Computed example of a mutant assay.
Amino acid sequence: MAGTYDSEQQRMIDRIRCIAFREARDAGATFINRQWIAEKVHRTTRFVTEWWEKSYDQCFADYSNSGPKLKLSQASRDTILNASGKQRKSCSVVAKEIAEKHGEYVVPRTINNYRHREGLKPFHVIPKSLKTETHISDRLWLCDWLKDWTKEDFLHLAPSDEFYVWTVRRPNYQNDRIWARSIEDIEQDERYREMVNHQTCIGVFIMFTCKRLLWVIKDKGESWTGEYFRDVILTQNVFPFLKK
Rank of each mutant, 00 (worst) to 15 (best):
Q9S: 12
Q9R: 07
Q9V: 11
R17E: 14
G28A: 07
F31K: 00
I32D: 12
N33F: 11
W36E: 02
I37W: 03
H42Q: 13
H42K: 14
T44E: 10
T49E: 13
K54G: 09
Y56E: 14
A61R: 13
Y63T: 00
N65R: 03
S66C: 06
L70D: 10
K71C: 07
A75E: 11
S76L: 01
R77A: 07
L81P: 02
A83S: 15
A83G: 15
G85F: 09
K89W: 08
S90D: 05
C91T: 08
V94A: 00
V94P: 00
A95H: 13
K101D: 07
K101N: 15
H102Y: 13
E104I: 05
V106R: 15
V107N: 12
T110E: 10
T110F: 11
I111N: 05
I111A: 07
H116N: 07
G119C: 02
G119K: 05
V125H: 03
I126G: 05
P127E: 05
K128Y: 01
L130F: 09
K131M: 06
T134Q: 07
S137I: 00
C143A: 09
C143W: 04
W145Q: 12
W145M: 04
W145N: 08
L146M: 13
D148C: 10
D153Y: 07
F154V: 01
L157H: 07
P159N: 14
P159V: 08
S160Y: 09
D161S: 03
D161C: 02
E162M: 01
E162C: 01
V168N: 14
V168R: 13
R170G: 09
W179D: 06
E184V: 00
I186T: 10
Y192F: 15
M195L: 08
M195R: 14
N197K: 10
Q199I: 05
Q199H: 09
T209W: 05
C210D: 08
L213N: 06
D219E: 15
E222N: 00
S223N: 01
G226S: 05
R230F: 06
D231Q: 14
I233R: 00
I233Q: 01
N237A: 04
F239S: 04
